[in-house]
Write a protein that binds this DNA or RNA. Structure first.
Lengths: 195, 195
DNA sequence: TTAATAACGTGACTTAAATCACTACCCTGA
DNA sequence: TCAGGGTAGTGATTTAAGTCACGTTATTAA
């Protein structure tokens, strides 16, 4: 029950619109609570990403594994973030990504078809989707630029400035992987920046 | 006149919906043709990106200049692509990017307020916007992964596979900059891959 | 409570790519 | 038509970051 409050509040805040009682009923009908324990997978490489999840509690990461066994963390996510490989979710193709709980995780999940329903019938939900798309586009652009033109140190400083919660909450090897660095390099950067 | 045909066709193809005559009238009212010669700027660092442009003919690139004078090319664009710094366009903040014509360029441009009108009143346009957002999200995700986990050579191969038009149409130094490489490195990669 | 495992720190060495320097070949416009 | 800026190729050198190896400190789970 109270799980849904977080989702309702989020939709209303992002969209700037109120949800009616029937909106809420519809959302509760189509979003299903799901719990994962730390290290369990929300999505595994090769599967189709049938569900998008709204994080009520906990955190997760999206990563790939290359042929040498290296893990690359593309996304970190926590409360009030959405969890999905959008390519697989939209196109229903097998995913190249893994999504793993970093802490015990509570999500509300829904299928693509159900999301389409919400977009059609719940104005606040549709507005929210547009705002999120804008925010994602902006964030992607920034991250792309950072990845391309910043040094390792600048990328770390950038992360500390824009997402200090990440640095506090996640282990350094995750942060390193998210920044596209080896854990050793991040360790050395941190040593230098503390002087 | 015939400029608009390209836009109409594009909207109809992407959305899968037909435009009515009044839809077309509205689009022609709010999109303004603009021509730029090679090397002219569609957008300059520090300005607000007031317009979004649909490329009818020609090509352009979005790039930043860092404090050492290095240019980083974030986007390359050609016919049927949109031209804007979305962060600046949505939020009306000064941009950190430059958008420069790589060839003589013809665009149809429109303001944020006018786009909002189209989204509200032209169903095909609204559908198109959603499809584009999906595509952008997917493309961004792929590019981010490539930037993070691929070597220089793999990134070039990836580009040749996914965007062979780029490699044919743009000078190598642009391609190198787009891939986040020095032009010398790209030159050497090309030499090796031809053996 | 204590093994076991994961996370972190640090030195030595390697490597991919950048930088610097120079040459050659274009286009293109006065 | 030829001078000069833009573009590309290539060798020599440098450098940022990765890799390897090993020790230490936290966490976790039985």
């Amino acid at each position: 029950m109270s799980n849904f409050e977080a989702l309702f509040e989020y939709i209303q805040e992002i969209s700037g619109k109120l949800l009616s009682e029937s909106d809420k009923q519809l959302l509760m009908l189509h979003f299903k609570p799901r719990k994962l324990r730390k290290r369990q997978f929300f999505l595994q490489e090769g599967d189709v990403c049938k569900y998008i999840g709204f994080i009520v509690k906990g955190s997760a990461r999206t990563f790939t594994v290359d042929e040498k066994g290296h893990e690359n963390t593309l996304k970190l996510a926590m409360e009030n973030w959405w969890l999905a490989d959008f390519e697989s979710f939209y196109l229903l193709t097998p995913t190249r990504f893994n999504i793993e709980a970093l802490e015990n995780l509570e999500v509300l999940q829904s299928t693509n078809a159900q999301i389409e329903e919400h977009l059609k019938h719940i104005p606040a939900f549709a507005t929210m989707a547009n705002v999120i798309n804008q925010n994602y586009t902006i964030a992607n652009q920034k991250r792309m630029q950072a990845a391309m033109s910043y040094t390792a140190e600048e990328r770390y400083e950038d992360l500390m400035r824009n997402y200090p919660q990440f640095v506090k909450r996640f282990p350094q090897n995750m942060i390193a992987s998210y920044l596209g660095l080896s854990r050793e390099t991040l360790s050395r950067i941190r040593k230098n920046s503390f002087k």
